[in-house]
């Protein structure tokens, strides 16, 4: 790992429902190095998107950061005022959304939407912004960009729109790009193209990436390091090959076991019994204890701490010897 670009330390995010606070993210501690690509996996509702939104400062109104620290380049984001944050948003940190069809303004030409980004953050003239946008569109693999510039989102395919989103995200040469399930809404061949593009852009521009997905195959394609999340906790963190080959946490192992594959043809896929406990029904102890095949008494009583299970390999489990 090189110098750390983004540092999250003991972050806790809670939703306020009625008069009570329900923590949705707890003890989030991780780093993203310069030019590094870090993946976050986990099933729906485990806090992946909440993690990215808290980095962006875009938490919904009912949620707030109750504890901890997020630093970008050593500068704290948590204490930033709204105005400072909006200077960081879009300039230093940008985000690609899950569904490009809904993430573009239907009534604004796509090129103009890319140029808007440059206008907002680079202090360039309209004409320069247009030129930058055209260049960026070509860089993300779009052709006939002059004509495309004036097209509206409904005239484009899903893959083209996601390329537009990527162009928009990278035009200001951000330090960190957050990709929240960028390929989920696309079909498989387009998925592969978009992943390649993201990887290429990561190499050529040196933008670090936080890649959120529930698809371990996609994570393997793109990421250097992976964080596995469960019910608001990080449960395992390791370099991608290490994690996929030697999972230590029972949840990760379960996830990997439930992947389809050629050798499992004809057999019923494994599923982890139970489901993620809802926000309001989380109890003490290990978050995964209720579904864990090898849970013991201590698992229900105490939240395990992250411990080292190898070089660069962290796991949150009582059953793993430190």
């Amino acid at each position: 790992m090189t110098n750390s670009l983004l540092e999250m330390r003991d972050l806790e995010v809670a939703f306020t429902l009625g008069k009570q606070d329900y923590p949705a993210l707890q003890q989030m501690t991780f780093q993203i190095g310069e030019k590094e690509t870090v993946g976050i996996v986990g099933e729906s509702g485990c806090g992946k998107s909440l993690t990215s939104l808290s980095i962006m400062g875009l938490l919904p109104g009912t949620a707030k950061i109750t504890k901890g620290e997020i630093r970008l380049d050593g500068k704290s984001l948590v204490t930033s005022s709204a105005q400072q944050w909006s200077g960081v948003r879009g300039k230093d940190i940008t985000m690609i959304f899950q569904d490009p069809m809904t993430a573009l303004n239907p009534l604004m030409p796509v090129g103009k939407q890319i140029a808007e980004m440059a206008l907002l953050h680079l202090g360039v003239s309209r004409k320069e912004a247009r030129q930058l946008a055209l260049d960026m569109m070509a860089k993300v693999g779009l052709s006939r960009v002059d004509r495309l510039y004036g097209d509206y989102p409904h005239q484009l395919s899903g893959g083209m729109m996601q390329r537009i989103m990527i162009a928009m995200a990278l035009i200001c040469q951000p330090k960190l790009l957050i990709a929240d399930e960028p390929t989920t809404a696309l079909d498989v061949t387009i998925q592969a193209q978009i992943l390649n593009l993201l990887r290429d852009m990561n190499h050529s521009t040196g933008t670090a990436m936080l890649f959120i997905s529930h698809d371990l195959g996609v994570i393997r394609e793109v990421c250097d390091r992976v964080i596995v999340m469960y019910a608001g906790y990080m449960v395992e963190e390791a370099p991608v090959e290490e994690l996929l080959d030697h999972p230590r946490h029972p949840y990760t192992a379960g996830l990997l076991q439930s992947l389809p594959g050629a050798d499992k043809r004809g057999r019923i896929l494994y599923t982890i019994p139970g489901r993620v406990p809802p926000l309001t029904g989380r109890r003490t102890g290990c978050p995964f204890a209720g579904r864990c095949p090898s849970a013991t008494a201590i698992c229900a009583a105490e939240v395990p701490q992250m411990k080292k299970a190898g070089e660069q390999h962290l796991v949150r489990c009582h059953l793993v010897a430190g």
């Binding site: 875009l58 948003r89 959304f97 993430a103 303004n105 808007e116 953050h121 928009m168």
Partner: peptide
Amino acid sequence: NFVKAAVARGAGATRIIVHH
């Protein structure tokens, strides 16, 4: 989503109201 995306891009309230 596209409005949220505009916020994520760092667009201010006036810009979002008028343009988006």
